[in-house]
């Protein structure tokens, strides 16, 4: 199973961040999550960014970009360096669906078997 992201459906509500952090740390916050919303509000450029065990999946509005360790990128991801220090997504193994998928209101995040 993996997490499928359709960036164009993202509305930047950040519910996924908090849901993930709840799974990771059991509280309301955004700091422990494996998923974040990268957003430059002034440019209206946003989408999810997901830390996985071997790479980072950057949901750009125009395409999905997969970043390997040490690989750099420009733009959207630059504001989200903190994700490098976070734990990777474990797909919420004890749940029917990952928490971020359960809370996402638009179908931007989906479970893919």
């Amino acid at each position: 199973m993996e997490l499928e992201i359709t960036s164009e459906k993202c509305i930047a509500c950040r519910a996924c961040e908090f849901a993930c952090s709840y799974h990771m740390d059991g509280d309301f916050s955004s700091i422990g999550s494996s998923i974040m919303i990268h957003r430059d509000e002034r440019k209206d450029y946003f989408g999810p960014i997901l830390k996985r065990s071997k790479d980072i999946l950057l949901g750009r509005p125009e395409r999905i970009e997969i970043l390997k360790p040490g690989q750099s990128t420009t733009g959207g991801a630059a504001a989200n360096k903190p994700i490098l220090m976070r734990g990777p997504c474990d797909l919420c193994p004890d749940e029917k669906v990952p928490f971020c998928v359960a809370i996402c209101p638009t179908g931007c995040l989906r479970k893919k078997e």
Binding site: S21, G26, F28, S29, I31, F99, A102, I103
Partner: peptide, 20 residues
Amino acid sequence: GLGNLEVADGFFPESAKLMQ
């Protein structure tokens, strides 16, 4: 805000249901 607040058991599934 980089802090955190506790979450009671049962709050998440009820919220997720209402969200959908």
